[in-house]
Computed example of a mutant assay.
Amino acid sequence: MVSLVPHTPDAVPDFARWPSFPFDGDLRVKQLDDPVDVEPPRKGEGTAECSSCSAPDDAYIWVSERWRVRAMDRPTGLPMVLILESRSHFDLGDLPNLLAAELGVMTVRLERAVRSLDGVARVHVNRWGDGSAHLHLWFLARPYGQLQLRGTFLSLWDSILPPITESRWRENLALVAAWLAEFGGRQLAEPPRIEWRTPSNLLEQASHPFDADREFGVELDADGRAAGDGPAAVLPIESIEPAADLDELVASPDSADPEDAVPGSSRADAVPAGVDASASEPEHTGAAVTSSEDDQPGGELDDEASDCAEQAVGTEAAGTGMSRRSAQPETVPAASGSARGGPTAGAATGSAASRGPSDQGRK
């Protein structure tokens, strides 16, 4: 009598030796169960409740009038895992022509959006449909450079790899949603919030004086100077106290250099001993003596020539009786604004009242 022996493969299939196969070691194939006569209903099939139809739009990252995209409830091992669903309850073979045409456009658009993320090399698009009767397509992003994740077992690696950070995951969701929103629909995924943190010691630093030893490792003595025989410590500007009185930095007048005296000051205008100070100042008869920036450079020479002429005339007058008036030179025009007592430009009438003392002596 011959008994039936269940068939057991002698060895595992060849794909177990592929580099992309996520397991290693001694493996054996499971025993295959007998087929069933009636398959159990899927989610959303028949009288079963459809979770996709009852889900609100807030559970998705992007929605439109006929399509919605959702993500996992937490980060996984791959950079991005998304599911494209139709808003209406259809399976793939039940789609009307309009949705069937849009499905191709949405598949390409979502694949491009996921592939645009940093660190993504390829996007695997899968459709199984054994768990839910509502149409849903999977989009799995394969990390760039991870050649071992290529091929059939990418979905298995997603559960094996350590999950990515939540901040990166949320940022990727927001980028994909924004990409889709450029073609219509509504973006629901927002980028992660930036956590602005104030330094914990900010108020403490403001309430305490500057400490050079704590800030720069410089020890200061009682006078606030760098201790030690080494080179002087370079302290920040904030740590240097201002002078108590600015006058301390100004030298006393007695110690000033005579060469530094400013013309017009009391020392620069000092009159030598034995000289009458009143004789060196011009007399004023009523007309203001003004100085002008337009003074001619020859004014001083004319005055010196006049003084010499007056001395010569006085000498000749004593010997020959010649009149002073006949010997004096031509007078300086009244319009010149000399700074040595000459009339101003406004006093051009030539009257005696508007001229200086030297003009009266030349009449």
Results as ranks from 00 to 15, higher is better:
V69S: 09
K30P: 08
R87V: 15
P22M: 08
V36N: 11
P13G: 03
L103Q: 05
L78A: 00
A55D: 06
S54T: 11
L98S: 12
V36H: 13
L84P: 06
V105Y: 07
L32N: 06
A101K: 09
D10H: 10
L98K: 07
S51N: 09
L82D: 00
P96C: 03
E39M: 12
P13M: 05
C53K: 08
T76C: 07
D57S: 10
L82P: 01
G77K: 00
D118S: 14
L95C: 02
D58C: 09
D34E: 15
S20C: 08
P35V: 02
T107Y: 00
R42T: 01
P41G: 01
R68I: 02
F15K: 08
R28G: 13
G25A: 09
A100M: 08
D94E: 15
I83P: 02
K43I: 13
T107D: 15
T8R: 14
S88R: 15
E39P: 11
T47Q: 10
P75L: 03
W62I: 04
P75W: 02
L78G: 02
S116C: 12
R66N: 14
R74C: 12
H89C: 13
D73T: 14
V12S: 04
S54Q: 05
L95K: 00
F21V: 03
A48F: 06
R87L: 00
E45C: 01
E65A: 15
A101D: 07
D58F: 06
D58H: 03
P79D: 05
W67K: 03
A16T: 15
R66K: 13
G77L: 00
P35F: 07
A11R: 15
M80K: 03
D118T: 07
G77R: 00
P13W: 01
S52G: 06
D34Q: 13
A48Q: 13
L78W: 00
T47E: 15
L110Y: 04
R74P: 04
C53V: 13
T107G: 15
S54N: 08
P13Q: 03
F15R: 10
V63T: 11
G25R: 12
D94I: 03
D91Y: 13
D34P: 05
E102K: 06
I61Y: 07
R87A: 01
A71V: 07
W62D: 01
E49Y: 04
R66M: 11
